Amino acid sequence: MFETRTYDDELVLPSHIRCRWKFLETSSAAAVLRSVCPEEWANILEVLEGFALEPTEWLKKGGNRGAIAKKIDKMFSDLGWQEMRVDLATRGILLTKSGKEIGSLPEMYQEGYLVDNFKGRVALDVEWNAKDGNLDRDLSAYRAWHEAGVISAAVLITQDRLELKALAENLWDGYLHTLPEESRDAKLPIDLNTSTTTNLEKTSLRVRRGVMGTCPLLVVAACAETWNGQPYSPVSTS
Rank of each mutant, 00 (worst) to 15 (best):
L95A: 12
V86G: 02
T178E: 04
V155E: 01
W41V: 02
S238P: 03
I44S: 05
V150R: 10
Y7L: 06
V155W: 00
L200Q: 03
G133M: 07
E107V: 13
A30C: 02
I157P: 00
R137G: 02
L79H: 01
P231C: 06
L179M: 06
D136E: 12
K165L: 05
K61G: 08
L167H: 07
T56W: 07
A222W: 01
A153N: 14
V150Y: 05
K131G: 09
T4D: 13
N134F: 05
G210S: 09
A31M: 05
A141F: 09
L124W: 04
I72S: 05
V220G: 00
E83L: 01
G62R: 00
T194D: 00
N228G: 12
D73R: 02
W128F: 13
S183H: 15
E182D: 14
S204Q: 09
R206Q: 12
K60D: 03
G50A: 15
D8Y: 07
G120N: 05
V115L: 14
R34F: 08
H16Q: 06
L59R: 00
F23C: 12
R18A: 15
V235D: 08
G103H: 04
Y142S: 07
A222D: 14
E225S: 14
N129R: 12
L156A: 08
Q110E: 10
S236N: 06
L13N: 01
S15I: 09
S140L: 08
Q110A: 13
E39I: 05
A69T: 15
G174T: 07
R161P: 08
P38H: 14
F76L: 04
L156M: 12
A29C: 07
T214S: 06
T178I: 08
N117S: 10
K71L: 02
D9V: 08
G149C: 13
W172Q: 02
K202F: 03
L179E: 03
V207E: 00
G66I: 06
E83T: 11
A67K: 12
A222T: 02
V126M: 07
A166K: 09
